[in-house]
Simulated assay, not measured.
Amino acid sequence: MERAGWVPDSVDVGLPSAARLYDYLLGGGHNFAADRALADRFLQAQPNARTIARLNRSFLRRAVLYLIDRGVRQFLDLGSGIPTVGNVHEVARKAAPESRVVYVDFEDVAVAHSRMLLEHDDLAAVLQEDMTRPDDVLYAAEATGLVDFAEPLGVLTVGVFHFVPPERDPAGVVAAYRDAVVPGSGLALSQFTADLQPAEMAGIVEVMKKSMNPMYPRSRAEITDLLTGFDIVEPGVVPLPLWRPEDDAVEEADPARSGIFAAVGLKK
């Protein structure tokens, strides 16, 4: 059945979304026929898409663990999408069981399933908010009682900022979150770029125009500018598999094929 019992009545299952596309590429089951059809076209434009999704999820894990090592015990996951294996609270709590997580997304299916998953979890919550409205997000996050802005906070924008159009002032959005957190906080960011595989990226942009989430790739310089006010940790703004690979192993023979730059910055 295309409409499971937990799918809100307001969801148009015929209109594909980026969150459900990502879920499908990761092998999840919270997607519909329209999302799978979009994924087929996405894979035609970028045959490496499933690997890229896996690499992005792996970066999220490494970034969370890095911030845990730096003493961060609370996270704000912006554009968190549909929960799959390797959620932030699962990763963080294996290293620090007291870790608190607030997930933020505006997509109905992502929020509905997140609420099911977190129903009995006192250290995690999900908010249905637009991450490009930081004042609303920050107010709602604090209201959960799980975020204390007097303590270092890990802000996660992993695989999501390429959906923020230029007219929504992405640099201003990041700056608002940066200004709200104390020194010692961190920002993890990954986003598609045309610098690495321009032809494939052009194809992806065309495919995503037919979804509810058009895509806006950015150059390495533009992504670096988003991190203004943060100390960018080594190795800097790099292709996904090159950001602090575990055991010095690169997960992709040609890192440029990841199509995404990733970085972590620490609040000065």
Rank of each mutant, 00 (worst) to 15 (best):
G184L: 10
G184P: 11
S185M: 09
G186L: 09
G186P: 12
L187F: 05
L187Y: 03
A188I: 11
A188Y: 08
A188W: 08
A188S: 15
L189N: 04
L189D: 02
L189W: 01
L189K: 07
S190W: 02
S190P: 01
S190A: 13
S190V: 00
Q191M: 15
Q191C: 07
Q191Y: 00
Q191D: 13
F192R: 11
F192M: 14
T193G: 11
T193F: 06
A194H: 14
A194E: 15
A194G: 15
D195H: 09
D195V: 10
D195A: 05
D195G: 10
L196V: 11
L196C: 07
L196P: 05
L196W: 03
L196Y: 07
Q197P: 02
Q197M: 09
Q197D: 06
Q197R: 09
Q197A: 05
P198S: 01
A199E: 14
A199C: 01
A199I: 00
E200Q: 14
M201E: 11
M201L: 01
A202E: 15
A202L: 07
A202C: 08
G203A: 07
G203L: 08
G203T: 05
I204F: 06
I204D: 08
V205Y: 05
V205T: 09
V205N: 00
V205D: 00
V205K: 04
E206V: 05
E206H: 02
E206K: 01
E206N: 09
E206A: 11
V207Y: 04
V207K: 02
V207N: 05
M208T: 12
M208E: 08
K209A: 10
K209Q: 14
K210H: 14
K210D: 15
K210G: 12
K210T: 15
K210Q: 15
S211Q: 09
S211T: 13
S211P: 14
M212W: 03
M212C: 11
M212H: 12
M212Q: 14
N213Y: 03
N213K: 02
N213H: 12
N213S: 15
P214L: 01
P214D: 01
P214N: 07
M215F: 00
M215V: 12
M215T: 13
Y216V: 04
Y216M: 00
P217R: 00
P217F: 03
P217S: 06
P217W: 07
R218I: 12
R218K: 12
R218Y: 06
S219P: 12
S219I: 09
R220N: 13
A221C: 10
A221M: 10
A221F: 08
A221G: 14
E222S: 15
E222H: 11
E222P: 10
E222M: 13
I223C: 06
I223N: 08
I223S: 08
